[in-house]
Design a protein around this nucleic acid. Structure first.
Lengths: 242, 242
DNA sequence: GTAGTTCATATAGCGTTGCTATAGGTGCTA
DNA sequence: TAGCACCTATAGCAACGCTATATGAACTAC
């Protein structure tokens, strides 16, 4: 139960810290656990990394290399906005695959102290957004767009990590992602055109659904149930005109 | 340098914890600091609150009451989506005004363990979104919309807290907020202009009816029938989007 | 080849942390 | 007055992050 091999103590400490961090299951990781697993004693840790945070920073740096590698891995699709979406998804996947490491990287928030890694991630996204801006696909400055998108990206990832694995719904991510990308893009410029029935009330909704029900899918309900259902819809359309 | 008065020890502990939390400046707050400021000894804390986290939960509960009060304070404007924007802004302001408390409430993230307060905040937002859904202003189910908006809202607030106060740019918040509200609303022209109006209006209709049904907990349908209808509505609203 | 210097690791322990086993005091009801 | 439930204090445990000090190993200087 120790990390051996001919690796020097510094590397063993890094590996031990990363491993414990990955398997800690949410509970804190102590320097004693790390040093024991690495097969060294406490002063060795402090000699090489200064303090616990220094060691974690080093682990994070390695993790960030992996993160960046993932973010750059795919070939640019020629559609910068599509690449942004892939960056987003990659970010979420990274967080879900290594939640403990992710939390050290992005979840260790304290007032007025910004982890360096956030700035790096922002720069990475800004770089990509720059390409979109060059081709006129951005309607806000790349820096602001990057900050905004990354904030939402981190928020969604943290929210997903906090949920129990079987309940995680990636639709949350996709929806938020598309909302953010859409918001900073010039695609929305075309939205001034005609909006069909812009304010759809319950009445309109009920009528539309009513029509849709009769037009198709009617085999999913028995006729009596359908009749009752339509009557119910009718009642709603009349009652809640507020 | 102690919280006196005739307050009982439990209240003094709460007050001391809240005060230390508010002024800790990011560093951790120890039980010894709290008990000393409250003028009691350690076992008193554990008698009343179980453990440190229990005490913090109690502080958070009080903080959440304040948070909810802020969220409900303004009169409904009659425009649910505008109310959602105000909820967003209130959330951010709450976080910036009491960053330490906010971090305990929303920033204390651990894998697979969701703070109860997140669910409460989500419910609060879902309630408001339900009103939007009833009047057909939502193009996604209120629950998903609430989750998505809240995730982005927390992400933005955390990001702002992490920044140094003079550098905080609230434009980040406003921009992300509008992007999210816009994304879940029917204000937008149909996404790519290519979607036929029929399908999307069925989605809107299903969502609006779903919200209306749940809001009016009526006795006009038996629970089993209602359950069946809701399930079917859910199927419709999902099948059209995927 | 020996002395000096530097780097790397170990021994041992400090101060603080969250928490608790145990006991004593206080006020109520019977 | 006896008993009981509630509340609080004394004292201390194990674990934490971290360090003063010492020892060994490797390299350079003469």
């Amino acid at each position: 139960m120790s990390i051996d091999g001919q690796l020097p103590p510094k590397a063993r400490l890094l590996r031990a810290a990363a491993e414990l961090l990955a398997n800690s299951g949410g509970s804190a990781v102590s320097t004693r656990q790390i040093t024991q697993l690495a097969g060294v004693t406490a002063p060795t840790l402090y000699h090489h990394f200064g303090d616990k945070e220094g060691l974690f920073d080093a682990v994070v740096a390695a993790g960030f290399d992996e993160y960046v590698a993932g973010e750059r891995d795919f070939a640019p699709s020629g559609q910068p906005l599509e690449d942004i979406r892939r960056m987003w998804d990659n970010h979420v996947q990274f967080g879900l695959k290594q939640p403990e490491l992710y939390l050290v990287m992005f979840g260790n928030i304290r007032p007025e102290s910004r982890p360096a890694i956030v700035a790096d991630a922002e720069a990475l996204m800004e770089e990509m957004l720059n390409k979109a801006a060059v081709s006129g696909q951005l309607n806000v400055p790349p820096r602001e767009a990057a900050r905004s998108i990354l904030a939402a990206n981190v928020g969604v990832t943290l929210m997903l990590i906090a949920e129990k694995a079987p309940e995680r719904n990636l639709e949350l991510s996709a929806m938020t992602r598309d909302a953010m990308v859409f918001a900073v893009s010039t695609e929305q410029a075309r939205n001034n055109g005609s909006v069909d029935s812009g304010e759809s009330s319950v009445v309109v909704a009920a009528i539309a659904l009513n029509a849709a029900l009769q037009a198709s899918h009617s085999d999913q309900l028995s006729s009596s149930e359908l009749k009752l259902f339509l009557e119910w819809l009718h009642r709603i359309s009349n009652s809640s005109t507020s």
